[in-house]
Design a binder for these strands. Structure first.
Lengths: 217, 217
DNA sequence: AATATAAAACCGAACAATCGTTCATTTTTC
DNA sequence: GAAAAATGAACGATTGTTCGGTTTTATATT
């Protein structure tokens, strides 16, 4: 049986160019890829270290040369694979002419980029249930301080805002993208999916937009 | 240590009047109560049958007189404890003068009643991760056919509707309450809770309401 | 109201399976 | 030739479930 680790490339990384990795790093990514697929299809608790090892083509003990626990694999997936590293710079650069522009542009970027990787939305559900938001909170702690200054700048520069508390604006922005992506995931998983219209991104963003903007401006 | 099962009353049932239950049924409810609390605090997979038995004050084997598997306990919790049985009649009776009335009244009933029992929203998260919506889908299958006729009646009787597809209306209604309750749960669990306003029920309902109603009516 | 009796409930020990993790050893890589 | 990676067997613990025997409960009869 051919091993899946020898390739040297990581299949779940969209940002990684075709650079030859050291054997160890390649295996580490292969473990994360396999574990992630298993977590998504079977759940975290239902996935065993032996299954992960089998999927990678590794002996059970070999995993522990790269991760010291099952928890650490999950953490590694979020740290190494989460697309926020690629999305964040684009969001920070989304400042447009008006606050409306920024809000709309940034929301579109996050939703469309995360929409390309819906597994991570699913992963966040697992994270909430299994780890009670431990890793998600860590992620938020890293992201929030970086985008808060942008909202502070927007508030100072623009006059068409109904809501002028930067932290509240940020929370509403995060709430917008999170609730959209979550709803989207529920729809695609549910038996009622046939009844629900998709591609409601623009309408959804507009709702939030009208909530923060002054009425006739 | 005193046993929790001898009381004959179920603590997690709001609908049950103070009627003395048969011993077996009392224990069954006690098992469901204990299991539910453990599932909510520890997760489904992390909760063992021994823990449930200990919490109830029962020997391990005793549980299997009432449930034939761990899965069945979870199913029992949803079937026996879910408040939809109490909420549904009130929703069906919520038909007001206009479609707007019905939509608003029904949403208020579901949100406020489910808001009293947020554990079940949390339980649905666990359900999605652990059972991939299996039990939730079963619940929806039972509820949907009962409320769809109401929307059909509303569509036929009212003229102020922008959306006239009953199934779509129903889906939007379910989406409204589900997304509100889910967001509410996320807020209360998250580290960013301080930044988020609560009690936004009216505003939230209005957003959906304006989405389905004609503009100037 | 006391008794008989079948059913339901419960106990306690045991089962087989699987879990995450460790470690001394060998192989591969750099 | 040193370091990193992979092996494979083993560990102790815990898991969900089963089962024969005992106790408690509910019901019908006296």
């Amino acid at each position: 049986m051919p091993s899946a680790i020898a390739s040297g490339y990581s299949t779940n990384d969209i940002h990684m160019p075709n650079i030859k990795l050291k054997k160890g790093e390649a295996t580490r990514h292969a473990i994360e890829d396999a574990a992630m697929n298993l977590f998504l299809t079977q759940g975290y608790a239902a996935t065993s270290m032996r299954q992960i090892a089998d999927e990678v083509g590794l002996a059970l003990g070999g995993i522990y040369n790269h991760f010291s626990s099952k928890d650490e694999i999950f953490e590694g997936i979020i740290v190494d694979k989460h697309p926020y590293k690629q999305i964040l710079p684009a969001v920070l650069a989304a400042e447009g002419e008006t606050a409306e522009d920024f809000y709309k542009n940034a929301a579109h970027i996050v939703i469309s980029e995360m929409g390309k990787r819906p597994e991570f939305v699913n992963l966040m559900f697992i994270e909430m249930v299994e780890f009670k938001g431990k890793h998600g909170a860590a992620l938020l702690k890293e992201i929030a301080p970086k985008i808060l200054p942008v909202f502070e700048r927007v508030v100072k520069a623009r006059k068409n805002l109904r809501v002028t508390n930067p932290a509240l604006l940020m929370r509403s922005f995060i709430g917008l993208v999170v609730s959209y992506l979550m709803t989207e995931m529920i729809i695609s998983n549910s038996i009622v999916s046939k009844l629900m219209p998709k591609n409601t991104e623009d309408a959804y963003i507009d709702i939030f937009l009208h909530g923060i903007l002054k009425a006739s401006e």
